[in-house]
Design a protein around this nucleic acid. Structure first.
Lengths: 301, 301
DNA sequence: CGAGAAGTCTGACTAGAATCAGAGACCATG
DNA sequence: CATGGTCTCTGATTCTAGTCAGACTTCTCG
């Protein structure tokens, strides 16, 4: 990294820290809206989590990062207060399903209301214009922070995550291509080529949901091809595409390729722009993909 | 508030909550960089605070919001670990001054380094462009959140806070007015008029530091005059001025006035623009203030 | 100087968060 | 149906955060 880049990074991280300090001090209190309901914070957090999405104790433990014994005790308390209903799972009677009772739902609504009130009180002193500015800044920051914490993971192209991501990709192509997109067969047929030893498939997830994906397959002669690259529409504009592209180039390198190629349709204007920005040059058609209109290549060290 | 305003407020508060949830989940961990030093969080927070700015235990208690007994114990622990040095204050031997020892400074640097690393790791996956965007969004949000949590408090015009704020105000006028500003005597002479029963002085503070101020004094015939209105340069553009102005109008109303007047110098362009935006109309000169060039009035219900 | 206020410290205590080991229920499999 | 593995629960225990009352020291001000 250049000298200038490093000092910028330091300055930006200082901004993050400064923000973090002042924000948690003032707004961290939002979490404390969980207090004052006559139950300790941990119990309230659990109640809240159950209300957001009921599930097995196992799920809840994973989501909240709690010890099983501790969770059990918290649940017992909520149960004896009549706020949740714990019953064995029919599929596996070792597991227990947790859901809110009617009283629990009321308590949850109460939490929700308090939390919303806190947020409203926070921004109430601002003028409407300033409030709009704050909302814009926070949602921008939110997108970027989420994007920064997305994890890229190599998975089997036949895994559930991969299938879900590819399905979203195909659905979008079908919608955006002038004549629609017919994926019949091709998806499953390609699956094998997108797996080791000569291929790979990467899914980016945030909170467990796929938000981007991309695959690599062999094209012969030390050339790798990037396929099925997709970024969730709600996640565009946060540099996730470039990051994924860089990552896939690294995967190609690891697989021993020294050149990357790809094709794309002209209606995917953002993609075309991104490839050009990333240093890809246009080349002649190298396959008979009927949907492909632009062809790119880039040498990787 | 209008129907549209209310729904906007609800939506903006939802943005705040959404951001808060995802941010604390991902970045709240920044605070936890305080962990892993072999000391509990509370102790580490205290150590950090002492390092940021040494002071008396009284200061620290105010800054961290701790019970005196509790603070005493935490200090004892840091002292016995050789990280801080606690000694009686020479000015007032009931008080104790706390400062870091050399070892404490090293531990503090360690905390600092960890925290900076955390922040850097967070933003590292972003492209330089996205990082710059995040930094911009966060500093914007920071300013607005700080502004929203500023507290407006009525104080005596002879109090320390008031004096500090007025001193800053005078210094700025002296710098901005083409011929400088001579405050000799006027400041103290006016102090009495800016106090109850016919006047008031309001100071806005954030983290204990004055960031804005303004006073009201009687002008006769049910007219109140706003004087010494000032907003810290670093805090402009966050709606703090408008908020303070609205607040002072409320103070005037409470004091029984039905009209507000003020004068200002032409070089304070932001102030002039703000008064006009707030519904003030220009009137003829109503005093012999040599620095005043514009005169405003507004009727309050 | 004396009274009361301000400041700090100590001891006693409570509640919450969290961990750990082991008991017991249940499942999948050969 | 025996066995090992998974899952939840209970009891025992530790650490941290935080509160409260009262003792003691020092200051301020009449």
């Amino acid at each position: 990294m250049s000298e200038a880049g490093a000092s910028e990074l330091a300055e930006q991280s200082a901004v993050v820290r400064r923000f973090n300090r002042s924000y948690t001090q003032r707004v961290g209190a939002l979490e404390e809206s969980f207090l004052g309901l006559g139950m300790p914070l941990g119990t309230a957090r659990l109640l809240y989590e159950v209300g957001v999405e009921p599930g097995t104790t196992r799920d809840l433990r994973a989501r909240l990062g709690l010890d099983s014994g501790y969770l059990s005790r918290l649940l017992r308390r909520l149960e004896s207060d009549g706020l949740v209903d714990v019953s064995p799972d029919d599929d596996d009677r070792r597991r227990r399903r947790v859901r809110l009772t009617a009283a629990g739902r009321r308590a949850w609504d109460d939490l929700e209301r308090r939390s919303a009130e806190r947020a409203r009180d926070l921004i109430a002193p601002l003028t409407p214009r300033q409030r709009a500015r704050l909302a814009a800044a926070l949602s921008d920051a939110d997108l970027l922070v989420r994007a920064a914490t997305v994890t890229l993971e190599q998975v089997s192209p036949t895994s559930d995550e991969a299938r879900a991501a590819v399905a979203a990709y195909v659905a979008e192509l079908d919608e955006r291509f002038p004549g629609g997109f017919d994926a019949s067969g091709a998806v499953d047929a390609d699956a094998e080529r997108l797996a080791p030893p000569t291929g790979a498939f990467v899914v980016a997830t945030s909170d467990g949901a796929p938000v981007a994906c991309g695959g690599v397959q062999a094209l012969g002669d030390g050339v790798g091809e990037i396929k099925r690259m997709w970024v969730h529409p709600g996640w565009r504009g946060a540099g996730l595409g470039s990051r994924l592209l860089r990552h896939l180039e690294g995967v190609c390198r690891d697989l021993g390729y020294d050149e990357v190629r790809m094709d794309t349709n002209g209606s995917l204007v953002e993609a075309v722009a991104m490839y050009e920005r990333a240093g890809y040059r246009r080349i002649a058609r190298y396959n008979d993909n009927p949907y492909a209109e632009h062809f790119f290549a880039k040498r990787i060290a």
